[in-house]
Design a protein around this nucleic acid. Structure first.
Length: 202
DNA sequence: CCCTGATTCGC
DNA sequence: GCGAATCAGG
């Protein structure tokens, strides 16, 4: 595969969103995370340098490498493109869809993203699940690694535990079954064979 | 171990 | 320019 404009665009976008190199590589396909990282560096957007305003007085000349002969720019307007600057500030662009936000707009920068997860699992409905599996789940959830969303990987159980609306929320995080999004215990409650679903008519 | 990005260097 | 191999961490 080659770095077409489209692929580069995807790379830039995802990198700007804080996606990991491996995630980007998977999304693009046909490349490894090394390739992605290499490209990122070649594109010069390796580090999200946004804190360039930290040194007001200090002369910003951290370049050990002396430029060959580029000292002639009395007013060279070279606006360095800010690739990852997602600031909800004065936007020159117009937002036709949404009315201008009042000053109450949350300035909190929305950081990273969800690691391309599978659709979140249904919470265990206390019924229609074998008592053994339920007991197993309760046991397992006491050993849960309590990972955050960002800490999940393809090999960690993504079973949510607790109430997302509170601080008491995390993901199981135990080793997931190969190819499955959950650990063994949660797989057993997540994937219910139709046959085990007795219709409890009453 | 699992993962992350950074760097090198032959191609 | 490209990216596998390697390095240096968490």
């Amino acid at each position: 595969m080659s770095w077409t404009d489209e692929r580069v665009e995807t790379l830039k976008r995802m990198w700007g969103e804080g996606q990991s190199a491996s995630a980007i590589a998977k999304e693009l396909g046909g490349v490894t995370r090394n390739a992605v990282i290499g490209k990122v560096h070649r594109l010069g957007l390796s580090n999200r340098t946004e804190e360039a305003e930290a040194a007001p007085a200090a002369a910003p000349a951290p370049q050990p490498v002396a430029e060959k002969k580029a000292e002639k720019k009395p007013a060279a307007p070279k606006p360095e493109p800010q690739p990852t600057a997602a600031k909800p500030e004065a936007a020159p662009a117009e937002k036709p869809a949404v009315a201008a936000q009042p000053a109450t707009f949350t300035p909190v920068p929305r950081r990273p993203i969800v690691p391309a997860g599978q659709p979140l699992p249904p919470q265990p409905s206390a019924n229609e699940i074998s008592p053994e599996a339920l007991a197993s789940v309760r046991e397992v959830e006491k050993k849960a690694r309590k990972l955050t969303l960002m800490e999940l990987t393809e090999r960690t159980c993504k079973w949510p535990i607790g109430d997302p609306a509170t601080d008491k929320f995390w993901f199981c995080g135990l080793p997931s079954q190969p190819g499955k999004p959950y650990c063994e215990a949660h797989v057993s409650v997540a994937f219910q064979p139709m046959s085990s679903r007795r219709d409890r008519r009453r």
